[in-house]
């Protein structure tokens, strides 16, 4: 819906665009974003108009009692908005956090490349290239060998940090076969800008050996 506002967006190749989702996690967040974007635009316009109106028309708003401003504007207006928004986001985030998937792929970060392993499948280990089946949930297990990195495939979903000494997980799904861009999103030293990878979603996936 919101693409109406930015027609030229659709023209980009969309390799890393959050606004061009290709999986359910990214899709949900993009929907959340457009709701928040239009809501924020309305609130901003209302606040600035109110300020200009009060400033440039000195008699404006004099009949409104002080209490109404404070209780109405300070409590009654923001509280329901932030409560509703936070509740929706938490409900959605909780559902996303509870998901798990039988297929696990290990992503190990180091300065400055990503290494992927596919335990239990016939897929060979790879560097800088992540392979995953299309149309199915995959759990990525993210670790780091040296400093903090962050694993991010914007078109599939949010990011998760690769922290030495910790094991983090994120569940992603690519709806369609294709190639999606991935980056390290936490500054990790001189080679940070080049620490990219690609994620290829395959229609065919080798038989898993449990």
């Amino acid at each position: 819906m919101g693409l109406l506002g930015f027609p030229f967006l659709a023209g980009c190749d969309g390799q890393l665009s959050v606004l061009d989702p290709a999986g359910p996690a990214a899709q949900g967040i993009a929907t959340l974003w457009w709701w928040m974007f239009w809501g924020a635009a309305v609130i901003l316009a209302a606040m600035v108009t109110l300020f200009l109106w009060l400033w440039l028309r000195p008699d404006a708003g004099r009949s409104v009692p002080a209490r109404w401003w404070l209780v109405g504007g300070g409590l009654a207006f923001p509280l329901p908005v932030v409560i509703a928004l936070t509740a929706a986001a938490l409900w959605w985030g909780d559902a996303a956090a509870r998901r798990s998937a039988p297929l696990r792929i290990e992503a190990e970060a180091r300065m400055w490349e990503w290494r992927f392993r596919y335990p239990g499948t016939a897929m060979a280990d790879s560097i800088g290239q992540l392979h995953l089946p299309a149309g199915r949930d995959v759990e990525i297990v993210v670790t780091s060998r040296d400093v903090i990195h962050s694993f991010w495939i914007p078109r599939l979903g949010g990011k998760i940090d690769a922290i030495p000494g910790h094991v983090n997980r994120i569940v992603l799904r690519a709806d369609e076969p294709g190639v999606y861009g991935g980056v390290c999103s936490e500054y990790c030293g001189l080679g940070h800008a080049g620490m990219t990878f690609s994620a290829t979603a395959h229609a065919d996936w080798p038989q898993e050996t449990p």
Partner: peptide, 27 residues
């Protein structure tokens, strides 16, 4: 997340106190 979103409330109280001041006076 809840605490972060709730910070909007005391911020709004201040902004609307300023609006109320402007409304009551002659800016």
């Amino acid at each position: 997340s809840i605490a972060s979103a709730l910070v909007a409330v005391p911020t709004a109280v201040q902004i609307f106190a300023w609006f109320a001041t402007m409304a009551a006076g002659r800016p």
